[in-house]
């Protein structure tokens, strides 16, 4: 007391006068950020599966997306993904929830914008992704065709080997089956045709099979007649 405290205080400030300054020289020297630092939320469109977990886990309705049912598969197609950043409170819940790791925070903390509209970020579906998808579907069709071809071939072989069993699917009378079986075994062309139809369309196969049979019956009748003559 009696001034000693004052003098001690003066001593402390004097000591700091000669110490190194601690001011951060931002923006001349960017601060060193910890690896976990959460700056700006980034979204990777390609990885997202539009599952909606992020939207549901966000407390502040920052995130939203639009989807479209794609024609040739049950998968939802992501059209756009919106981050309305002005409401984000950097809580990391969305990032932790995402099963595909498509959300992450980068270290960019300079988020000020001149207008409110600039804060909102909309990710549109990149054009490359649509092209990729077309190629994908095309190749898928090819693949399917290949598969069918293989099936047909297998079927025709099976027909030639054991026709009765297979043809029972399309014909009812045993006589007819026997006739067609003979036919199939004789000509590969018929076998292939039958096989294709069997794979693709059973009803049509039945009709065509019946047609084959009647035709053959007629042929045979005429042959018998001719023989008699």
């Amino acid at each position: 007391m009696n001034g000693q405290g004052l003098i001690k205080g003066l001593g402390i400030t004097l000591k700091h006068f000669f110490q190194k300054e601690i001011t951060e020289q931002y923006p001349d020297v960017m601060p060193e950020l910890a690896p976990r630092f959460r700056g700006c939320l980034q979204f990777e469109f390609e990885k997202c599966i539009a599952c909606g977990i992020c939207v549901n886990s966000c407390p502040n309705d920052v995130l939203s997306f639009e989807t479209e049912k794609s024609e040739n598969s049950k998968k939802k197609k992501l059209l756009s993904y919106t981050i309305d950043f002005q409401y984000c409170m950097f809580c990391n819940l969305c990032v932790e929830g995402c099963p595909k790791d498509c959300l992450h925070f980068d270290h960019d903390f300079e988020l000020s914008t001149f207008s409110r509209d600039d804060i909102k970020r909309v990710y549109l579906r990149p054009a490359e992704m649509d092209e990729e998808e077309e190629v994908e579907t095309a190749s898928m069709q090819d693949e399917q065709e290949n598969k069918e071809q293989n099936k047909i071939e297998a079927m025709s072989k099976a027909l030639q080997k054991n026709p009765a069993k297979i043809l029972a699917q399309v014909l009812e009378q045993e006589e007819d089956i026997k006739i067609l079986s003979e036919l199939v075994q004789e000509s590969e062309k018929t076998a292939l045709k039958m096989a294709e139809l069997l794979v693709k369309d059973k009803e049509k196969a039945a009709k065509v099979a019946a047609g084959f049979v009647t035709k053959e019956k007629k042929n045979r009748l005429q042959a018998e007649k001719g023989g008699e003559e």
Binding site: G5, K8, G9, I12
Partner: peptide, 14 residues
Amino acid sequence: DEYNGLMTGNEIWA
């Protein structure tokens, strides 16, 4: 120590 030296121990502060 520093807080005490600069503030708590200061007569004006007290």
